[in-house]
Design a protein around this nucleic acid. Sequence first.
DNA 1: GTCTATATGAAGATAGAC
DNA 2: GTCTATCTTCATATAGAC
Lengths: 225, 225
Amino acid sequence: MRRTNQVMTTQPPSSDELNTKALTVLRAARNVFLTHGFSATTDMIQREAGVSKSTVYAHYANKEALFVAVIEAECAAFTNTVRGIGFRPGKLRETLTMLARAYLDIVLSPGGLAVFRVVIAEGPRFPKLARTFYLAGPQVMTTMVSEQLARAAASGEVDLGEIGRDTAASLFINLVRGEPQLQCLTHPDAAPSSAQIDQWANAAVVTFMRAYGCGEEAPSRRSRS
Amino acid sequence: MRRTNQVMTTQPPSSDELNTKALTVLRAARNVFLTHGFSATTDMIQREAGVSKSTVYAHYANKEALFVAVIEAECAAFTNTVRGIGFRPGKLRETLTMLARAYLDIVLSPGGLAVFRVVIAEGPRFPKLARTFYLAGPQVMTTMVSEQLARAAASGEVDLGEIGRDTAASLFINLVRGEPQLQCLTHPDAAPSSAQIDQWANAAVVTFMRAYGCGEEAPSRRSRS
DNA sequence: GTCTATATGAAGATAGAC
DNA sequence: GTCTATCTTCATATAGAC
């Protein structure tokens, strides 16, 4: 029931225009590329999408272009997920724990691990995508932590010494992500328990607070000898 | 100038027997797989080695077997390199700095990055290789750090609190490897300067010592307010 | 835009001579 | 063991009908 061609073209592509087929192809390509890497075949994508080869090539010039579209969409989604982490800023220790846990949930998710795998693997062939990933994921997270450190520094909860806020935030992210991510990447069969993830997050926060925390915390710290 | 067939077969394969061709193939496969990943072709390997296809398949059943041989050799070499890090145990801060710097040199080397890339990428298809890599690289390094922490704990240079030695060692490795490795993986064109690597190593050591060090260091630390 | 059918090339692996 | 030549399969991409 179209009014006029004029109206049609000014309407947003609500559910048919670009949506139906192009999005179907993109979503199928996402699943296939994230499962098998760039060496996945266009055949698999075509079958997963339930369309013909021509439909795939009608929307994307070639395999590379489709791959780039998939990864860029994943990076954008990654940024949104990180930005959308819900946390109520409070005492630094609690804030960092919330952030660490939320970040690990993203990084260790099947999608998070798959994107990391394929982006790192294809870094030499798609250097632009690799940089996009870095900015969309770790960089955004580091910035969020850095902002919380600024708050905490103002309220005297933290003493960063000669080290910069951004460097400190980066070091915190290293503490959080390092071992958990490496373990999940090298043990693809054994997914960590929720309790294990909490333990990892806690160890990172405890270490960071021991290094740079100096607020009105529990006075038990460093009360030895 | 062969003496007899009998002698030939009882002699060790000093420089011709298995050495020349089989090793040539393995070395060529190493370069090709580490550059292009598992999707590298046997054609490239054959050309790089300067032999024919038949020679490749005379020594390795198929592409997978050759790939496994390459990665296992790399892992073994990795272990030897890590174990061979020369350091004179002294004050903990200096020891950790030496270890951090040496580990970064390995991890950030072209070979180190390439092995990481391909092992992580093929983890789902070769889970055994992924676990081997974890044990041969990060695990060995963590153990070395853990041993130094034991020494330091005995001499009162360190107070790990409730945290385990191995956990502390793992956290230190996280601090060292995290950002540098991620940055090199996602910026394949820009190799970091030696000064940059030193800075990274120092930041990790400073942070770890602030968290867990408690020896007769410079007394300036935490002298605030 | 979408389909079926196909052109074109490349990759893994083998046959058979030497 | 090593080579040349080749078999077979499969992957990317396109042609042409609707």
